[in-house]
Design a protein around this nucleic acid. Structure first.
Length: 299
DNA sequence: CGTACCCCCTGGCTGC
DNA sequence: TGCAGCCAGGGGGTAC
């Protein structure tokens, strides 16, 4: 599922209900997701207060008041649901009828019971996601997951000059490079496709060719950075994308960004939406993942 | 160090 | 209606 805008949408949904509140108890329903849960994680969390809920790249960071952190990657199908008084996150169902998000569904793996009768449930059918515990005495800059992340795309740490430095020695296609979380943190398959289309850059273009010989960014690279920021912020504003496997966090009827705004993703064989372009959107496979682009206006 | 590949797992959809 | 085959938002680990 979730790329940066979806994770940010989840964060914004959870934080007002959970921040400043204590964890009454934790229900862990299986020994692992993608990775095993930390030993005695349920006991260790009990009684701690949630200080803030932050995001870094595609990770949710639940910061606790003893300085430990729960780092949650949602993988492909991870989602959070809350129940409790005044909570708008409604439990949902899969097509075959299995209820999720009540804390008792077949894929409800991790449940936080919070003071005031709030329950926050992590559901993840494919279990590609994980919940990683960062101990109080660990510097988060040195955490195995956080330390390898590139700059936050919407921050001042990310601009065309920084990106150029990263692309300069890369011989792989730009599509693959932008998916590398150490280059920029938060882009996934959908938004990379969209951003490249809006910038008129072919996904096959070799990354280093977007950098001048002297190491400075080309004008196309500057445009790419602008589009990354604009596409992500527009998608956040719209509440993230809604796809078949991920309903927006405010309920089943929330269509999010997807139906209106995707120009290439999932549009194989359809006409390019650019006014002055008569191309047909094509699907290819790069690094074992689908790429959608218009061969006519993306060069 | 950069790159290519395989793999983790379940569910939805299409087509026979 | 059943079922095989293919596809899916991520990204860690390993081999080169």
């Amino acid at each position: 599922m979730p790329e940066l805008p979806e994770v940010e949408t989840v964060r914004r949904g959870l934080s007002p209900h959970l921040e400043g509140k204590s964890i009454v108890n934790v229900d862990i329903r299986r020994p692992d997701l993608r990775f095993p849960f930390a030993k005695d994680l349920d006991k260790r969390l009990t009684g701690l207060k949630i200080r803030t809920i932050d995001r870094r790249g595609k990770y949710l960071l639940i910061r606790l008041d003893d300085d430990s952190i729960l780092l949650n990657s949602l993988g492909m199908s991870g989602r959070w649901t809350m129940t409790g008084e005044g909570i708008a996150f409604t439990p949902g169902t899969f097509a075959h009828g299995a209820v999720i998000g009540t804390g008792d569904g077949p894929h409800d793996h991790f449940v936080l019971n919070i003071e005031g009768g709030i329950r926050a449930t992590y559901t993840d059918a494919r279990r590609f996601g994980y919940i990683h515990f960062i101990e109080s005495d660990v510097n988060e800059e040195e955490d195995r997951f956080l330390s390898v992340l590139g700059p936050e795309p919407m921050s001042q740490d990310f601009d065309a000059t920084v990106l150029a430095k990263n692309l300069k020695n890369r011989s792989s296609p730009i599509k693959n490079t932008l998916l590398d979380q150490s280059v920029v943190a938060g882009l996934g398959n959908i938004y990379v496709n969209e951003v490249l289309n809006r910038t008129g850059i072919s996904p096959r273009r070799i990354s280093s060719t977007l950098v001048r010989k002297n190491g400075s960014p080309t004008s196309r690279l500057e445009l790419l950075v602008e589009q990354i920021q604009e596409v992500l912020s527009d998608a956040i504003e719209a509440g993230g994308s809604t796809l078949q496997d991920f309903r927006g966090v405010s309920g089943e009827d929330d269509l999010g960004w997807f139906p209106v705004n995707f120009r290439v993703y999932g549009r194989e064989g359809l006409s390019c939406v650019r006014d002055d372009c008569s191309g047909i959107v094509q699907r290819i496979v790069q690094a074992n993942r689908s790429t959608f682009f218009c061969p006519s206006c993306q060069r």
